[in-house]
Amino acid sequence: MKRVLMRGNEAIAEAAIRSGLKCYFCYPITPQGELVEYMARELPKRGGVFLQAESEVAAINMVYGAAAAGVRTMTSSSSPGISLKQEGISYIAMARLPCVIVNMMRGGPGLGNIAPAQGDYFQATKGGGHGDYRLIVLAPSSVPEAAELVGLAFDLSDRYRVPAMILADGMIGQMMEPVALPEPVDPAEIPPRPWAVTGAKGRPKNVISSFDLEPEGLRRMNLVLQETYREIERNEVRWEEVETEDAELLLVAYGTMGRIAKTVVRLAREEGLPVGLLRPITLWPFPYGPIRALAERVKAVLTVELSAGQMWEDVRLAVEGRTETPFYGELGGVVPSPGRILEEVRRYVR
């Protein structure tokens, strides 16, 4: 397949367009500016709608409207903007509308900075807004993988009627790598949406809502969500393992850190250290089972993150005391070198 050199942000935009994206709504924020620019330039040419909204609040509510109208729709932002979208995402989740949300995480809390960070893990994987809901969260660790996961995000979101998030950071967004872009999706292959608001002609009216004043009714709506989530947990857990067969120390890292951890595994192996890596690709559903299985045979599971230990909580839930679960994290947009992590690794294996 032909490969082209692209930035992560551009590859995500192009992959989304090829996935049949019809409506894209945004509000500018670094480090995902190239994604917005690419969409502004390309999407209208290819029959889609590009609209710069007055805020992230408006943008996500436009996504809600477009998704309700039954088209493939997407928004992208970075941490502070994603915080503003949480109200809308909660409504979208309960109304069971498919859509894709891209979060190019940056350092936080507050205005933070624009450097790579992973401090939005809780927000992305535990709901984020109010109520009991989940997003399908996909974490690419390279530009080609980002492009690939965009198509998957649209497909999974359509299949389960659950919003999907691409969770990456400015490192993935701004680095350039060769990408084999997917073939454009045949519109006929996009699943039909009989529930969408398209005008009640020759059918009963459709209503898109997240509301039921009656507790029994709202309970039923919640149970539908929960059943869907259990199904996703059974079918859609994705992860990558590197050199885990004989590993005595298991690294767990995702996204940018997952990529750096791969280098760490190589360097460790060169020193003869039995180190492996499990890189979650779906952060929700989280690969609890695969981590648990490896925890049975390794001496320690070291979580490495660009946060104070958000994914670490899930790793510990997976391990459930079967082995040691140390943690190494960096904060504020500081990205540790492979050498720095290797020092950490040497504390647990010889």
Binding site: F25, L51, Y64, A68, V71, K205, N206, I208
Partner: peptide
């Protein structure tokens, strides 16, 4: 008796924008 979308408090014009841009015939 027509199709309906329930919006979050205050967001109706943004939701309407999304629908109308997606399907201008509505």
């Amino acid at each position: 008796n027509c199709d309906f979308v329930q919006a979050a408090h205050g967001r109706a014009c943004a939701v309407a924008t999304g629908i109308k841009r997606a399907r201008p015939d509505l």
